Computed example of a mutant assay.
Amino acid sequence: MTNNPAPAMVDWDLAVSFGSRVAGEGPTVSREEAVAAVAELRAGADRSTGLVREFTGLVAEDRTAPVVVVDRPGWIQANADSFATILGPVIEQLAAKKRPPTGLALTVGSKVTGAEVGGLLGFLAGKVLGQFDPFFGANGRLLLVAPNIVHVERELGALPRDFRLWVCLHEETHRVQFTAVPWMRDHLFGEMQRIAETIEPQRLLDDGFKRVTEALKGGGGSLIDAIGTPEQKEIVDRVTGVMSLLEGHADVVMDGVGPTVIPSVAEIRRSFDQRRKGVGTLDRILRRLLGLDAKMAQYRNGAAFVRGVVGKVGMHEFNAVWDRPENLPSKAEITDPAAWVSRVL
């Protein structure tokens, strides 16, 4: 058994190269436009730190996490690195419970898996505007995908300066969440490890494909719904509650801060929410399989939760949610803010 099974069982170099081909390069921009976009995004991220701090009351040190403006291949490489970190415990668990392949079988299997992961990353790389990666280094890093931001602002007919700051506000809120709440990173990584501990390789091989096929046919749910055990789904429900909180909180910050610094924010929000619905049959199938439809619900439900609690008790009392893991809302509480208030406050 290799000491580091994650890279051996997934050909990450192939995933990056194949994903980059799938993603394409994005819109055509001149060198001057590209330089201006990068500078404006960096400035927007720096400006957003104080705006988020003032609105939320969360205190995160300036520039603790690097801001990296990337193209689509750069985003794919960054996420391949993160996937290798996150999936490490899962693959180690699989290797411990089932004799891992060696030789030619390992080489072929790693390339097949690498191509599958690359296809997934390539699809997502054309859609993601920004992302905070909490698993990079000690403090994480903030990724802003310049070609996608330029593509969407053109598609929406938005003012570039306004749209870029709007995106930065959302992503900087995630940086503040993880930097001002230092236990959050280890908490999420621990949940990933708990999923790994529950994996049964034989059960996955026996009927996992059948359930994935049923999900694709319209039975509803994502990959985890298709192949997850009850114990895994319980963990995923907890993670869903956390992710709904993080995404909804960032959306509330965008909408709360936006009108004070972004003149066209109302029009941006209307146009962007319409775009979030996705277009085309293939797009809808992939969204269902990957759980992206559920992610859209996370934005809506999480934002409603934050607004519901803040409206009832104020932002200062709401911030008790960041005190310790036990204060995080469950998936059920996300849609019932009063229940969270009763339990925690």
Rank of each mutant, 00 (worst) to 15 (best):
L124E: 07
D133T: 15
R154C: 04
G314C: 09
A23V: 04
G256Y: 05
V253S: 00
V265Y: 05
K97G: 01
E25M: 10
E54V: 15
R42C: 03
K97W: 03
A115N: 06
L205P: 06
L292K: 10
T49W: 14
S342H: 12
L156C: 06
V309E: 11
V29G: 00
L165M: 08
R269H: 07
D255M: 14
I149W: 02
S48N: 13
A339E: 08
D336G: 07
S330K: 04
L142M: 13
G218V: 13
R194G: 03
Q202R: 14
Q177C: 02
D13W: 10
G219Q: 15
A43F: 14
G140L: 04
V261A: 00
K127I: 06
L245S: 02
K111V: 10
M184V: 04
N79D: 06
I224W: 08
V16C: 03
L143W: 09
A180F: 00
A338W: 12
G57T: 12
L121R: 10
D336M: 14
I334C: 00
K277M: 15
V10P: 00
G126V: 12
Q77H: 08
G19L: 14
S82L: 08
L289W: 02
D186M: 04
S110F: 00
K111L: 05
S20K: 10
N327G: 11
V265H: 15
V236N: 12
Q177W: 04
L121F: 03
S82C: 06
V10M: 03
V252A: 05
V257Q: 03
Q77T: 04
S264G: 13
M9P: 01
F178K: 04
N301E: 13
G280F: 05
A84M: 14
I235N: 03
G137A: 05
D293H: 12
R307H: 11
W75P: 03
N3M: 12
V117H: 05
E191W: 11
A297Q: 08
A37V: 05
G74Y: 05
E247L: 02
G26Y: 04
P230Y: 11
D251K: 14
F318A: 10
P5A: 15
H170F: 07
R154E: 13
L188F: 03
M315R: 15
S30L: 09
F135Y: 08
P73V: 04
M243Y: 15
G130E: 12
L58M: 06
G114I: 05
S271V: 08
V70S: 02
K217F: 14
A43T: 14
F136G: 06
H316G: 10
F18R: 11
E25H: 05
T64F: 07
V52N: 08
V341T: 14
F18N: 09
R287D: 15
G308S: 11
E40D: 12
E191P: 05
S330A: 02
P7R: 12
R53N: 08
R185H: 09
S82A: 12
V341M: 00
S244Y: 01
I224E: 13
P263T: 08
A23R: 07
A80R: 07
